[in-house]
Design a protein around this nucleic acid. Structure first.
Length: 575
DNA sequence: GTAGGGTTAG
């Protein structure tokens, strides 16, 4: 009977029965003890029917400790989140010479997955791999997801290869893991392989694949996945639906995201957060804020992420007052303590708006030391407003905190270049070289003719690059007639001025835009993606291009979207 | 008598 309650997850009922049993004078045996240990493990300390009953005492009192009892102890600890205790028990078990079985392994793997005890996890993992060749599928999956969750994708791939069998969950974990770790193309390949091997993808696998499309900007594959999803009857899946909202937003079609959001039969706070984020990334700050207010009216509680997205939305749209109001409300009304990330959004909002002294006040009010996030936001704002003095201060802090971060050097060097202080530019560049820091290469890509075309600066690798350059030349002639003047302040090295013009004319985003215009059907919107922030001259040039060709051009850079149309950009130069 | 694996939002 005690076991039955334990199986029903009713730990308290089992404990009560055990107390009765003892009161009536029955002596519990090993089996009873094990069940009760398990029952105690199910219940939180504060909710336990009998506070005096501790699994550890029961365990220590057992005359003969079989593997089952050890397992019950370990899984109880894991269940209550006492991971250190679980590891201690595991070690003790090893020292006592009792052989582990698959129950032991799964509990301990799960403990490794739940914590950042990665080092310990690795030792145990190595041990398990050697000691136990035969594992069941669930243990393998637990191991796989612990690697995926800690971002160790090479190890995860090894495990995935090594697994003697796989199920739906194995595939889903791997597909989502690749998506989250910047390996979108591999993730989509795996999704197709899954189907080829006869597995019908579940909605979690779909969600992972859709997330990859969002990262890559592959609207085409994203739409295909959406229709497959409907055909297979997963239309109501929350995780897939939420991933789709993000995918549409991140692929530049925020209207499609909104349509989906409005027609989904179930939504949760993740859906709301995703939709608010999509609006914010496209610079629709007012709409984002309105949606947030609607969320509150519907009685849905905002969380930390909701506030991050709302503050970002305010920042991209210059809604300073609203930002302040929500920042205060977060703590005062919703009881959420702002983290460094929330403060960083506020600093970003204020600096972007040129309110540096307010930003400094904000930093002064922080209950902890400002970290890299704060100074990065500060520096970016200084760069936008050409505030050299404060920019240098922020950069110095960043050099101390994260000397290997390429962005600091680049922003600082950009600031000097914009003012024509070329000596300082070369000093920063030298410092960067001396520190062994490499700039992440800029690249832009565009989806056309069923594949992605990637362009680097001054690209020579793409097979059709000559056609792109000659088309760009033609475009520039037309643009100049409308008043376009190349802005060479955005070159990073000092050189002769015609060389500077050449240098900016080959920026990757210009190449990708030109290629898209050449290859996509007449009149179709061109959607270009860039890994870093768009360059100021490119931003200006693409405005002119949109006017010359009479087409809409959408660029997603590392931070946000720019919709170019009729010579204007949706960001209204606020970015 | 003991156990366990997933997803979506920034």
């Amino acid at each position: 009977m005690i076991t039955a309650h334990s199986h029903d997850n009713d730990g308290n009922a089992a404990i009560r029965l055990f107390c009765e049993m003892q009161r009536d004078g029955f002596r519990p045996d090993n089996f009873t003890f094990t069940s009760v240990i398990s029952a105690v493990g199910l219940v939180a300390e504060s909710e336990k029917h009998c506070q005096q009953l501790h699994s550890r005492e029961l365990f220590d009192g057992m005359a003969e400790k079989l593997v089952v009892a050890w397992n019950a102890m370990i899984s109880g600890y894991v269940h209550r989140g006492l991971l250190q205790e679980a590891f201690k028990m595991f070690k003790k078990m090893y020292l006592s010479g009792v052989q582990f079985d698959e129950f032991t392994y799964t509990s301990i793997i799960s403990a490794c997955a739940n914590a950042s005890f990665l080092l310990l996890g690795r030792q145990i993992h190595a041990y398990i791999l050697i000691k136990m060749r035969v594992k069941d599928l669930v243990s393998w999956n637990a191991m796989l997801s612990s690697y995926v969750n800690s971002g160790r994708m090479n190890e995860a791939k090894e495990i995935f290869q090594e697994m003697p069998e796989k199920n739906l969950l194995t595939w889903a974990v791997m597909i989502a893991g690749l998506a989250q770790n910047g390996l979108g193309e591999e993730s989509l390949k795996l999704f197709n392989l899954m189907k080829l091997q006869g597995f019908q993808p579940c909605d979690y696998a779909f969600a992972g694949a859709i997330t990859s499309c969002a990262a890559l900007g592959s609207l085409k594959s994203g739409r295909q996945l959406h229709s497959q999803l409907i055909r297979l009857g997963f239309e109501c899946s929350l995780s897939a639906g939420n991933a789709l909202i993000t995918m549409y937003g991140r692929c530049g079609v925020v209207g499609d995201a909104r349509n989906l959001f409005l027609t989904m039969s179930f939504v949760d706070s993740v859906s709301w957060n995703a939709m608010i984020a999509a609006l914010g990334q496209h610079g629709h700050g007012v709409q984002a804020v309105e949606l947030f207010e609607e969320m509150l009216k519907e009685g849905i509680l905002p969380d930390r992420i909701t506030f991050l997205t709302v503050l970002s939305a305010c920042s991209h749209a210059g809604l300073v007052e609203e930002g302040h109001r929500y920042f205060d409300a977060m703590h005062d009304i919703y009881g959420i303590t702002p983290g460094e990330d929330h403060y960083a959004r506020m600093v970003d909002l204020l600096c972007r708006a040129g309110k540096f002294s307010d930003a400094n006040d904000m930093i002064g009010k922080m209950p902890f030391q400002p970290g890299p996030q704060i100074w990065e936001a500060f520096l970016a704002g200084c760069r936008n407003h050409g505030n050299m003095e404060l920019g240098i201060q922020a950069a110095e802090r960043l050099f101390e905190m994260i000397p290997q971060n390429d962005g600091t050097y680049i922003l600082l060097s950009n600031m000097y270049a914009a003012k024509g202080l070329w000596d300082n530019v070369s000093r920063v560049r030298k410092l960067m070289r001396d520190q062994g820091v490499k700039k992440e290469p800029a690249c832009s890509w565009v989806e056309a003719e069923n594949k992605f075309h990637v362009f680097m600066v001054d690209d020579t690798a793409h097979p059709e690059v000559n056609a792109v350059y000659s088309y760009l030349k033609q475009l520039v002639l037309e643009m100049r007639k409308l008043g376009y003047v190349p802005d060479t302040r955005f070159v990073l090295h000092d050189m002769e001025s015609d060389q500077k013009e050449h240098a900016i004319s080959t920026h990757s985003e210009k190449l990708a835009v030109a290629f898209g215009l050449l290859k996509l059907p007449r009149g179709a919107t061109v959607r270009v993606f860039k890994n870093l922030r768009i360059c100021g001259d490119c931003h200006n040039a693409i405005k002119y291009i949109s006017k010359v060709v009479g087409r809409e051009i959408v660029v997603r850079d590392g931070k946000r979207f720019h919709h170019f149309k009729d010579g204007e950009c949706s960001c209204r130069n606020y970015w």
